[in-house]
């Protein structure tokens, strides 16, 4: 029996939206190579919507599949909707992850959240300066 299900394997073998965004509106980096996985998410925001989501991932099969799934779930969503993506909802969309791999999926949603936070932080400073 394979360790990963078909859906996870599909996202691992054919990861969606891989890459970086030049002049991204927000960047979120989580994890470190010591713990095993590291992900950097890039977002482009237009009219409060995630117009584009890209990422780079260092890690195992699950980490790559999770990044791909998060990018797919987030793309086109409003910021509020995207913030609702959780490790559990990502794992559910992937139809389950091996128990010991569940921590990897935490990172995907967390990295996206950080990218959104980064964007919102920049908006505030921008707004502050204009006032």
């Amino acid at each position: 029996m394979p360790v990963y299900n078909e859906k996870v394997m599909d996202h691992f073998m054919n990861p969606r939206n891989v890459g970086e965004i030049d002049n991204a509106d927000g960047v979120g980096e989580v994890g470190n190579p010591v713990c095993g996985d590291m992900m950097t998410f890039y977002i482009k925001v237009k009219d409060n919507h995630l117009e584009d989501v890209k990422y780079k991932t260092f890690g195992c099969g699950a980490a790559i599949a999770v990044s791909s799934m998060v990018s797919e779930m987030a793309k086109g969503k409003t910021l509020e909707e995207a913030k609702k993506i959780t490790p559990k909802s990502v794992a559910d969309e992937l139809k389950g992850l091996p128990k010991q791999k569940f921590h990897c999926s935490n990172l995907g949603a967390q990295a996206l959240g950080k990218a959104i936070e980064d964007y919102e932080g920049k908006q505030k400073t921008k707004g502050g300066k204009e006032q």
């Binding site: 990963y4 691992f12 073998m13 095993g36 890690g59 099969g61 980490a63």
Partner: peptide
């Protein structure tokens, strides 16, 4: 710069 399990899985494929 890359991780072993991912290499293992791609090689397996």
């Amino acid at each position: 710069f890359i991780e072993g399990e991912a290499m293992l899985m791609l090689l397996n494929s």
